[in-house]
Design a protein around this nucleic acid. Structure first.
Lengths: 202, 202, 202, 202
DNA sequence: TATGAATGAGAATTCATTCAT
DNA sequence: GATGAATGAATTCTCATTCAT
């Protein structure tokens, strides 16, 4: 029984993997179910044994990617015993590493945004992305707040605003890195972060 | 003759306007040529007298939007005689104003990114977006460099990196503002910019 | 303008004709839209310019056949100045003639019944068939009632019951005639009617 | 061995029962093999151990229903020692009772007709229905003939024609009863039969 | 023997584009 | 020039049937 469920989950994941790579390459609309099936090495009809349709599958891909990134982020950020600045540096490194790792899946992210912008799935995606952004901001904000409390950062720093800017900033650097092969994401993000930290320090 | 060309240009623009609003609402794939025609108050076939097809029309919408934003930006940023920090503040305000103004067209931007990510038009869009980002970065970088030269900013500030971060940051705040109605873009962007400026100052 | 509407109506009818013959031959489910298009000598997509889908088209075929039969019936039955028995004979002849004429379309009728029995269109068809039967019964009942009033038929004849039996009877003879080539519908229906008339006469 | 065959027959019947109820509700095309399996409480594949496919199963349902009705009819009609009119009344009651009993299966009958009208199974169904109708007509005809011979009915009554009309008539009343909940089948069929008997009597 | 996961043929429908008017 | 009727390629999804377990 457990074995059965495992098998099913495994196959579901195989389809998600295949779908992710095809969606990443051709975009949501450009992707044809048959391509996903071929990529997964299964029959066209089989996908529908695991997912109700294209939209659901796409959303599942989103959820999988989302979960994956959040796990990475949360684990790494827990790093305690550091200064707030130090933890922000860890946060930065984690995000940058994640981008580097998923670089060729980055187009997927853009597809998700597009789905949130205008599509029958708009609402689900907006909600999910809103939550995702909120989570990341929350992580950053709590670090900054710790910094303020400990006296490391100026008392008048707006932690929520800066968290939004930091999270957004890293995201935007990711986009530029994806767009330009020679964009030095590591360097730029470090420089950016240090400047912001300097601006927040007493 | 000139009159004739004007008429044609005018009609072309009308189609672009109509296309922009429909693309913004339904996304590229969700948009049907007939809807654009109806919105423009013309016949379906007429669009093809002015544009070779859907893709070209979409790209024309992109170019039109791009041009429009760049003009606004360039004009406003020319503001001389200010300190570098002051000019960055103007830059910021311009960008924020542009977002506020175009808010309901913001989905279009996401569609452009999606087109750059994966679509038959991928290359054109990537190139254009690359250029666009480069232009904005260049604007910001030149202001920062002026600040360094004038001694207003630290000599070790990496102007290109900070330009990328600033431009990207504003972009990312725009996305968050679009996603969450109550996101205080004005406040956050001011807070963000001031912190960065502080971090760059001597 | 009128010309335009005429053209459209004409083409719509051409599609209905084509559909009727294909539905009659292959049944609703066995019919493929492409076959109808081919039969009508048009492109597959063109059907959808005139009908929203297969179901609607099928229902339109039903309505067309229904209208056609009812017109024939009503016109002929108006024959006044006859005895009730005479008018029932006219009624009978009209119905029998109609069956003979539409013999190769008879399968369509069975498809309509099947659609009423179990299909997503069930309700519409049930309603329409109910109305159709009610109309025919009404015609027959009014003749019988006239016969009762005029003293031609027994005062205790239940006109509504006999109308139902007569209409149903003819219908059922039609089915048997369709099923067996050598079924003598003319003879049987005459015999049937005369017996019933005899039974109703004083 | 006999036990084994019994078990098999029993299960086959269970499948037929399940199939009958699903076909009745959703029609032939609307019925999905999986639904039948679920209704029968067995696995999808198991059906194919007992029937070669959907068509065969459907035909088996038809045969089962056919047999069932014919048995009822034959048994009841054998009632001897009565007048011809009396036996016709029994015949009528039996048919009417059967309709009342199978009311919610009536849609099945319409599906059978539709299958006979146009489907790959057309020939089989036509043949079987032809036989079925012939049998019922034969039953009625023999009663009428007895009535003629015994001098109860007019010598010029066409027994075959009247048998066709009677059998068809009851069928058609069944359809109307199915279509309209408040159709008084009992009353109408009695009225109908009495009038016909009166018309046949000397 | 029983099962249900896997399959792919097949069908309805959509829509960018063409072209006769 | 402007139009919109006509088209058919392309796509999603369904489901009878098979077959390995």
């Amino acid at each position: 029984m457990i074995n059965f469920l495992d098998k099913r989950k495994e196959k579901k994941q195989r389809i998600i993997d295949a779908a992710a790579s095809v969606f990443a390459e051709k975009g949501y609309s450009g992707t044809v179910m048959a391509d996903i099936a071929k990529q997964a090495g299964i029959g066209k009809g089989t996908i529908y044994e695991y997912f109700p349709g294209k939209e659901e599958l796409f959303f599942s891909v989103f959820e999988w990617m989302n979960t994956k990134m959040k796990q990475t982020a949360r684990v790494s950020i827990a790093a305690l015993g550091e200064t707030a600045a130090g933890r922000l540096r860890v946060f930065s490194r984690v995000v940058v590493d994640a981008y580097n790792e998923l670089q060729d899946m980055y187009t997927l992210t853009l597809e998700f945004w597009s789905a949130a912008a205008a599509s029958p799935m708009r609402d689900r995606f907006q909600k999910a992305l809103r939550q995702m952004y909120a989570d990341y901001r929350e992580m950053a904000a709590s670090i900054i707040e710790d910094g303020i409390k400990s006296g490391e950062f100026r008392y008048d720093v707006d932690s929520r605003a800066m968290a939004a800017a930091l999270v957004g900033g890293f995201d935007a650097l990711g986009i530029q890195a994806w767009l330009e092969a020679r964009f030095d994401m590591n360097g730029v993000s470090r420089e950016f972060l240090e400047t912001v930290i300097r601006g927040m320090k007493k």
